[in-house]
Computed example of a mutant assay.
Amino acid sequence: MTSLHAELPYQELLDAVEESQVRVEASLEVLTDGQALEPSMLPGWSRGHVITHLARNADALNRFAIGVITGESAPEMYPGGPAARGAAIEEGAGRPAELLAADFRFAGRRVLDSLRLISEDRFEILVNWRKSVSARDIPVLRWRELEIHHVDLGLDYTAADWPWAFVEHTLRTELHELSALHPDVSVPDLPRAELLAWLVGRPTRAGLPPAPAWPF
């Protein structure tokens, strides 16, 4: 298993996640009801779908964090599996912008509070994400959700706005994964943020080689 946290200390990861949370909150403060119903950058999803997904992802990662703290690990990320996950997103997607923003704010801040309670002696406890990852990697999972889906909202935030630390941190781990799992894939020569956008399936220009579905 490749660790996701690379060299960043746990506290620095949490601070970065909090900064990403605040940036999304700022975008949602000015979101109108009409904009919430409009299509996002993700096929088949409105902005309301993306925001609801971000809130339910926070709930899921919070269950992981609480399990690590209490020693009663959550057996799966989304109780009820993919069908229940999809139903929850559909149910919440059509809410007014104010409720979407409040849901996102509460869920996102709650998981941050829980993650701050994970002590160093519990960092190596495994949780059952798509693959087993350590507890110290949970902030990375949230960081990626916030930054990538902020772009997917199609509002005022693009790959060019990604923090340098996020771009470099993610490229360090994910280019390694790509090379290990898909050695025949040609990696394009691009500026770093554009390279990451290509890697995670959000290419910023036409004519690039196809990338495998991410996460690998």
Rank of each mutant, 00 (worst) to 15 (best):
S3W: 05
E7V: 04
L8Q: 11
P9M: 13
Y10F: 08
E12W: 08
E12K: 10
V17D: 04
Q21Y: 14
V22I: 14
S27D: 09
A55T: 02
R56L: 12
L61K: 11
I69W: 01
E72G: 01
Y78R: 06
P82K: 13
G86Q: 12
G86A: 14
G92H: 05
G92P: 06
L99H: 02
L99W: 04
L100M: 08
D103M: 13
R110D: 11
L112H: 07
D113W: 08
L117P: 02
I125S: 08
L126Y: 08
V127P: 00
R130Y: 13
S132L: 15
V133M: 07
R136S: 12
R136E: 06
R136A: 10
D137L: 01
L141P: 00
L146P: 01
I148T: 05
A160E: 15
W162Q: 00
W162K: 02
R172I: 12
T173I: 07
L175N: 08
L175D: 05
E177G: 13
D189G: 09
L190F: 13
P191H: 02
P191Y: 04
P191S: 03
L195W: 01
A197V: 00
V200Y: 11
G201F: 04
R202D: 11
R202W: 01
A211P: 09
A211G: 13
